[in-house]
Structures are given as structure tokens and as C-alpha cells.
Design a protein around this nucleic acid. Sequence first.
DNA 1: CGCGCGCTTGATCGATCTCAAAGGTGGTGG
DNA 2: CCACCACCTTTGAGATCGATCAAGCGCGCG
Lengths: 242, 242
Amino acid sequence: MTSRDPPFGKLISKLRAMGSLDDEDVRAIEVLPSRLARANARGQLVRNGDVPAECCLLIEGYAARSKTAVDGRRQIVSFHIPGDLLDLQHLFLPRADHDVQAITGATVVWIPMAALRSLIASRPNVGAAFWRDALIDASIFREWVLNVGRRDAKTRIAHMLCEFIARCEAAGVGTPQRIRLPFSQDEIADATGLTPIHVNRMLRELTEDRLIRRDGREITIDDWRGFQRAAGFDAAYLHAAA
Amino acid sequence: MTSRDPPFGKLISKLRAMGSLDDEDVRAIEVLPSRLARANARGQLVRNGDVPAECCLLIEGYAARSKTAVDGRRQIVSFHIPGDLLDLQHLFLPRADHDVQAITGATVVWIPMAALRSLIASRPNVGAAFWRDALIDASIFREWVLNVGRRDAKTRIAHMLCEFIARCEAAGVGTPQRIRLPFSQDEIADATGLTPIHVNRMLRELTEDRLIRRDGREITIDDWRGFQRAAGFDAAYLHAAA
DNA sequence: CGCGCGCTTGATCGATCTCAAAGGTGGTGG
DNA sequence: CCACCACCTTTGAGATCGATCAAGCGCGCG
């Protein structure tokens, strides 16, 4: 990673960590046509039902993918960090089945679908890396089904925090020791299928249990191993670089 | 579909429905090396932590994909029907992060990963179809996160039934009018994040509400539209052939 | 200075779980 | 052919986790 991240820097280092990209592949990604843009907190990046012609790459800031039930209840199904492609699936599934929005101010880059399509056609390694990335996303969704379906509130929140921290660390954003959470308690509630009120109480209990320390949205974890154990967290499902 | 389904019949018609496979592509799938096998109910097809060398294609019968929390609580994350590839992801993610087991007696076919790898390398259309299939799986996982996170017990069970019925119908197995469920109430509980006892009561209530009629595991739905509405079910996320 | 959003806390309610037990049903072996 | 066994379904009673309703607080921003 360079000190001044070029637009594709984090994406390339992520793909590199998990696949076999040669210099040609990297070059092909770097010359992808792209349009830099800025999103406000709560800005919509992908809208349910849309047929996007561009793919959104998150450069800086954080985003959440969410679905809404007919009665209006909202469920966040994943969080995204810099370097994540937010809707690569629209290469093959034209119509969006969910929303993606920035949860902080964010910098993104829009890449024409057509360019990505020809990229993966001409560079099979890149196609494989993208595919693999999509499969990791799917693995994370499965873990979330387990999280929301079979873990109690406190463990569930702890698990969500573990995942977020582990992914941020792998992406070189923050350390397990001390991290600034980008999400409000409302957003944690929507991600865990709980009520913001209950999230608040559980965060208090996690603090009382000395598993975390909090200062606003800044979180400190003194015993990272112990916290993972308490959360029932096993990073295998993230399929990080072996 | 032929009257005597050849091993790849259902898979090919599924891929055909959603992509553009030419005759060469179909031929390439049909000549895939494969090993026919039989699995008992509850037989393990993929085991968490394994590094499978073959990919499992479900020919007949039903299967469930599940994960287990550290405290032993189990969550089913998807159901599978004939024509589904059960672990295509191991093309790119060597180590299984979950279990797959037959929930009825089942017929499967094992295909060497290497053969699949060269198939997608030589036939880009097939690769795209597989990729698309994986993305639909991911979309279903997202819907399950919403289902388990934000719907009440009765709606949640109804939604799960809707999805199963819709997928069976699309695959040409059964009709919405009348369908035999392959799963026990225990399995419905594990899929919905509920208790089997509560599943039983909710099934009773769905019956009392005249949304379904039951005769053992045989279910009849008189008003399919009305049932979908009651379940908050919108099939868009299945991304069926446009 | 005031307003809005997010955080915090208390009190009560209710959906779902847990514990307990009985009744079916289909398959298997004697 | 029957008897048993394993597994599944059903029902009741009581406990509990997390939701809902209701306020108040603090801080950043216009």
C-alpha cells in the first residue's frame, strides 16, 4: 500500500492477498475507467430495484447493505470497508435486490459495468479473484444468518464487532486494540436484528464484563483473544489469505 | 426435461433458464466425469473444515446447508433441491466453512473439481452461469438474514415455505397448490432460528388462519397469492429467469 | 441559543423459550 | 405378523429475553 492510496490501491492489495494476480492483471485494473465521487453519510449508493450501469468501489469511509421487510423493518446484511466492491453482482444479476448506503461520509469510485465485463473476459485471473471475493461475501452472509438466528443478544453484538474489527485489521484500517466504530447503535441494532435500546444495554454489559472499553464510538479491546472467545468468533469463514 | 432425467438434466435446464448456454456448452457439461452416489437421510455431504476434491450435485432428494455455533446451536442457512450444486464455492475457497447434509434419502453425483475448473476455463458461458448461480445463492442468504432478523415467527415460517415452494415450482418439482415438505419441524426450527415447539404452534396458527392446510408433511395452499402476501414474500430476490 | 440526533435509563409487556410429558408413525427385527 | 424402537408431532405451564413505551440527557451544528 502506498502512502497516498490511489483509487484502486486497497482493492488491488485485497485481491492480491487472496489470489494470483500478475503485473499485467494489476495494470489492467489500474487503467479501468472510473469516476470519483463523494457520498454523504446516509447517501444511497445502490437502490433496491435499480439496474445499475456502473459498479461502486468504496475508497474511503464505510457502507451498509440492507433490506427492508414489507412492514418497513430494516435489516443490515453486511458492512463494507474501503477496498470493497459494493455491487459487483450486478454484472450477472441486473436488478438490485437491496440497498447500499454510506454510513459515514465516503469516497467512492464508479466503474462502468461494461469495462468490468471486458476486464474479466480478458483477464481470467481477475475474474477468478472477483468470483472468490463474491464467495467470501456469501460466506459472511451465512455467518450472519447463524449470528442473527442462533446467538443471544450480547454474543451477537460481540460477534458483529469481532468481524468488523478483523476485517478492518486485514484491510489495514485500525487495530484490534483500539478502533473507531463508524456505526450508530441504531445501525448495530439493524445489523443484529435487535432494538437500539437493547443494543445500548448489551454494550453496557460488555463494558461491565470488561470485554470492551468505550469512549463514545471509540472502542478498546484489551484481550482480543478473550473477546473473540466470548463472541464465539472463528475467523475461518472470512477465508483470509491462507 | 426428459422423462428419465439424466444426471445433469435439472442442472442444465436451470442454467439454461438463466443464461445463454449454446449446444457446445451443454455438451461440455454432459460429458463431465461424474460418480453417482446415494446418500441416506441425514447423510453428510460436505463437512465443515474439509477440503473437498469433488463437487456435489444434487440429483434427487433434498439437502440442507448448516452452521453450528460454539455452544452447539445449529442454524440451517439454505435448503437445496434437485439440480443444485452444493459446493461449487470450493473451486475458489478450498476449505468448507459449513456442513451440508441430505435431509431425505438423496441421489447425488460427485464431479472432480479439476474437471469443473477446466470446464469454466474453456467455456466462459458456463463459468458465467455458475457465477450467476452463486450470486443467486448469496441473494438468498441475504433474504434469510432479513427473515431471521426482522420477521416474527409466523411470518418467518410462512416466508421460508414460500421460498421453498417457489423454488420447487421453478425447478419443476411440485406445485404451489400441494407440496410434500421434506423437512421435519426440527429442521424448520433450525432454518428459522426458532424452537421446534414454537414452529409447531405457528404451523397450527397458519392452519387456523386458513393460510395452509396440512396432512402430515403434505401442505396445501388454496390462495397462493394471499399466502405470499401474508409472508411478505416477493420472489424478486430469487432472480428467476427474466 | 435552540434544535435534532443519538445515547442512556426505567418500567412494563409479550413473544418465544424451556421444561415436561404424552401420543403418533414408520421401519426393523424377531 | 407383531412388537418394539427411534423419531417426530403435539400440548401444557411457567420462565425469560428482548421489545415497547416513556423520558431525560448531552453534544454538535446551524
